[in-house]
Amino acid sequence: MASALWSGFEHDFGNGIHLLAPQVEHIVRMILKGEGVHTSNIDRDGIENENGLTTLLNNERAEEILGEDLLFELKAVFTESVGPNLRNEVAHGLLSDRSSSSVASVYSWWMILRLVVRSLYETEKDNKD
């Protein structure tokens, strides 16, 4: 995560998005798990699998936990086919050099930086209380 954020500060959003996209799923998963949401499923062979980002964001409690605005942002940037769909583009090797440095990649970098900084602020605030 630190390398991805540093890449953005160095204006290397192409590398940054390739590192950040998988971490977004992890961040969302940890937030939901922290609120008691089950983030996995058991297939018909009895094997437990973690749900993907789209399924996590479509969870019935996602809006309550993440908030309407952040949920919309995450879906619009990372999972919706009418948007940049960065998570799927990166995961499936479809992100071109040009689109990896697009406005959407820069915006996603900023959005994740904002989430990290906000979490640090909230942690510090909680420690003072």
Score class of each variant (00 low, 15 high):
A2F: 04
W6Q: 02
W6S: 01
S7E: 03
S7N: 08
S7A: 05
S7K: 09
G8A: 03
F9T: 00
F9S: 00
H11P: 00
F13Y: 13
G16M: 13
G16A: 15
L19E: 12
L20H: 06
P22S: 14
P22L: 12
E25K: 14
I27D: 15
R29N: 14
E35F: 08
E35V: 02
G36V: 10
G36Q: 03
G36E: 03
V37K: 12
V37E: 13
H38Y: 10
T39S: 06
T39Y: 08
S40A: 15
N41E: 14
N41D: 13
D43A: 10
D43T: 08
R44K: 10
R44A: 04
R44W: 05
D45V: 04
G46K: 08
I47T: 07
N49G: 10
N51P: 04
G52R: 14
T54R: 00
T54P: 00
L56H: 04
L57P: 08
N58M: 11
N59T: 11
E60G: 11
E60M: 12
E64Y: 06
I65H: 05
L66N: 05
G67P: 05
L71W: 12
L71G: 03
L71D: 07
F72T: 15
F72Q: 15
E73K: 15
A76W: 09
T79M: 03
E80L: 00
G83C: 08
R87Y: 15
R87C: 04
R87A: 06
N88V: 10
E89A: 09
E89L: 04
V90K: 05
V90N: 06
S96T: 14
R98K: 13
S99D: 03
S100T: 01
V103Q: 07
V103P: 02
A104Q: 03
A104Y: 01
S105V: 00
S105Q: 02
W109F: 01
W110E: 02
I112P: 00
I112C: 04
R114Y: 09
R114S: 12
V116K: 10
V117T: 08
R118A: 11
L120I: 03
Y121G: 09
K125D: 11
K125G: 01
D126I: 11
N127V: 05
N127H: 10
N127D: 04
D129W: 13
